[in-house]
Write a protein that binds this DNA or RNA. Structure first.
Lengths: 241, 241
DNA sequence: GATTGCCAATTGTACGATAAACGACCGGCA
DNA sequence: TGCCGGTCGTTTATCGTACAATTGGCAATC
């Protein structure tokens, strides 16, 4: 049947992941690119994509434009659409990061991610110790309390853990650090199964409390050190070479 | 007058910044959003944008879809397109960052940016001291040499400075750190005039050399400290509170 | 007064046509 | 033979129109 044998799924396609056809298309193509489906195969033309997935060319073009905006592909007339090298991808885009984590998860990726966290979060804690306001402190304490509750069986300890780290990033009062909220929460949520498998996540509540205390005490250096310990533990745990 | 007085420019519009109409549109709308043009005014409908700028609705939609992909706006039927709060913007997207720096530049933003660098780059230097290969070391040394040459009047010292920092980020062998290449280079290029104005950028070549030496000597701790000094100097210079 | 159903505005989707870019191919000429 | 130039086909870029889907608000009705 012509050209379309390239993709596994044909006809109804669109497991309809997104809220509309374009977003579903974006998700499908994004995942396919990240998993390397087009590494030794040319990216299909707009007409082919539209035909294969049973959508109009408009939908296809808008999805491809979004991929372009995220750095995954580049399009030129006559030459077609080509997948960009992974170094050009916007890894801090929530979608790209999620696709990468879901489809290309590995211990190496987890290590790289925590190497990033160990740069960001201790510094964020130090900034939080300087700039956190009352609301921030409440959010941090609440996250900590819910972690303890979660440990006792009441509530979700993962969500509490995430909320704790988010609150600190926000309390830094720096938009660049705040940006990492989506990155860290996405990655934590995706990697949780792995992290939990190798670690009884219990003892570190004391470490988290140390961070909170240092922030409330307005002690940047102590906050930095305490946060470094939390993430350093994770790094040694996953074999930071 | 109907509805269209909202935008200052009408008719030919499109100073045609990009390589095609869609990219020009993206650039125009992105700048307008970042400068806050729609903070106390609703974002125009697709039809209005198309009419105002003299392009088809397809071009408008594709540009808006790209803005959506970068987190600047969100669209829903009947409700229209709305600008997202700045906290949802993907600040690490090259376009968003460039628009922000060009149009909303301030000492505060510069301080926030260098607070980020002081988290990232020392850690990147430490990783580089562990993982840099021969090619990385060459790139780092070359950047340093060209900084010295630039100081002597031969070549562009800014580009050499940028190349130096890029090489270290790359040498970390961590894709998340490598991602910051575009962020740091974009920001450095944009903020150079300000930075140069307040600082005779001469003495810090010694500091840069210290970083390079530590990396070549495979001394992560020394590399981290030396890089911290470089960026710490900038921070104190711009009045780190 | 509350509920239900219709209306209108705006984005979402489809289709068809034409323009522009540009690599590839082919033919002619020295 | 080998180079040069133009033609052609492929693919994205742009345009225009038509219709579907969504949903907030209004109005009619019970």
């Amino acid at each position: 049947m012509a050209i379309d044998m390239t993709d596994g799924d044909v006809l109804p396609t669109t497991a309809t992941v997104g809220r509309n056809l374009t977003h579903g298309m974006l998700d499908t193509l994004g995942r396919a690119i990240v998993t390397g489906r087009y590494e030794n195969r040319p990216f299909p033309t707009e007409a082919e994509i539209a035909k294969t997935h049973g959508v109009s060319r408009s939908v296809t073009r808008e999805a491809v434009k979004m991929l372009t905006a995220k750095g995954l592909v580049s399009a030129r007339p006559r030459q077609g659409t080509v997948v960009q090298p992974a170094s050009a991808w916007n890894l801090f885009d929530t979608d790209v990061l999620r696709w990468t984590l879901e489809r290309k998860f590995s211990v190496e990726l987890l290590r790289h991610f925590n190497q990033l966290r160990i740069a960001i979060e201790p510094e964020a804690a130090a900034l939080a110790a300087r700039f956190a306001d009352a609301a921030d402190e409440v959010a941090i304490r609440t996250g900590l309390a819910q972690m303890e509750a979660g440990e006792a069986g009441t509530g979700d300890p993962l969500e509490a853990d995430i909320a704790f780290h988010m609150a600190i990033l926000r309390a830094s009062k720096n938009p660049f650090y705040a940006q990492f909220q989506s990155v860290v929460s996405t990655a934590l949520r995706t990697s949780i199964r792995f992290t939990n498998r190798i670690k009884g996540r219990s003892a570190n509540i004391a470490d988290h409390a140390a961070v909170a205390d240092a922030i409330v005490a307005r002690d940047p250096a102590a906050a930095r050190i305490a946060m470094t310990r939390i993430i350093g533990d994770v790094l040694t745990l996953i074999g930071e070479e």
